[in-house]
């Protein structure tokens, strides 16, 4: 969504150079600037500062510069902290696992979400309304409720296993809960509607006369999909991917409720530093900063590649 907007805006003023409310811009922007600056940019700045402070035992910070948090993230000095430094794989591993899970969830959402969006966009009349209505409802249903529902469904003696046993497909319960697969299922299920809606909005704008033209030039159906439709609806696909990927990366509910909180994901690792057993604020701040940088770098890379492609 955001990406599209940027493109449209940078490609020129829609209403010409002369704005109607010229001169009022600062007054109109001020509330947004102030709110976002004071309550988001400043907090992020303070978090950055905290990541360079010394930890206070059992939570909190001491105002003394220290690189300990980043050192802890990247270097392993053994159980007692006095061995020669080696690369620390623990946290990189946790980040990698989260990235991998989020990436897979995005891919799965795309594989199922694109055809769904396509089907919705190509219905007409009442059926389109029904499909759209049905896809919107899960989007508006509380994420927590949906995760809880999934947990209930797949637990060892939940309805799914009960039925599969009853109809004789299985002879012992399928163990899904508290596995990586369950986390994946939860992420996929949580964010699927986020993928469908932006793609639908893009396909809706697609002119099917182009498909016809492609067919006249003997392009096959799938070739048209790949080379004509897909490039044109790409902004929607990208928006959908971002809307699935970013929240999956920092997801907390699915790993906690469906994954049994057994392995840290980025979200739970950070949470543990502030609300859990380990009260290491600078480290939590540093891990948050690294996660934030990772996301922003990825988004910037994408934005740059887009503007280069346009030139």
């Amino acid at each position: 969504m955001a990406e599209q907007e940027t493109q449209e805006q940078s490609s020129g003023e829609p209403s010409g150079e002369r704005g109607i409310y010229e001169g009022l811009a600062y007054y109109l922007m001020a509330p947004a600037w102030v709110t976002l600056f004071v309550f988001l940019v400043v907090p992020l700045g303070i978090m950055l500062v905290y990541s360079f402070l010394t930890k206070e035992f059992r939570g909190g910070v001491i105002w003394e510069f220290s690189l300990a948090a980043y050192d802890q993230f990247f270097f392993d000095r053994g159980l007692f902290g006095d061995e020669p430094a080696r690369i620390e794989w623990t946290y990189i591993g946790i980040f990698w696992r989260s990235l991998w899970q989020a990436g897979l969830a995005t891919l799965l959402c795309l594989l199922l979400g694109f055809p769904t969006a396509f089907v919705i966009a190509t219905r007409s009349g009442r059926w389109k309304f029904v499909w759209l209505f049905l896809i919107t409802i899960p989007y508006w249903v509380n994420l927590l409720i949906r995760t809880i529902s999934m947990k209930f469904l797949i637990r060892d003696n939940g309805p799914l296993n009960e039925w599969l046993l009853a109809i004789g497909v299985l002879d012992k319960p399928l163990h899904l809960i508290n596995t990586d697969f369950a986390i994946q299922l939860g992420l996929f299920y949580s964010y699927l509607p986020f993928m469908v809606l932006p793609i639908y909005a893009s396909i809706e704008r697609y002119n099917f006369a182009l498909s016809e033209a492609a067919a006249d030039l003997y392009a096959s159906r799938w070739y048209t999909l790949r080379r004509v439709i897909f490039p044109l609806v790409k902004p929607g696909v990208v928006a959908g991917c971002i809307l699935v990927f970013v929240p999956s990366l920092g997801a907390f509910l699915a790993p906690d409720l469906l994954g049994g909180a057994k392995k840290f994901m980025i979200g739970s690792l950070i949470e543990e530093q502030f609300k859990g057993n380990i009260g290491n604020w600078p480290f939590g701040a540093a891990a948050s900063m690294l996660l934030l940088s990772l996301v922003l770098v990825m988004l910037t890379c994408y934005a740059l590649s887009q503007s280069r492609a346009r030139r």
Binding site: T90, G93, K263
Partner: peptide, 12 residues
Amino acid sequence: EVYDEIWTQLRQ
């Protein structure tokens, strides 16, 4: 601090 390290390794 060692306990915290053990704990983090455990939840890796």
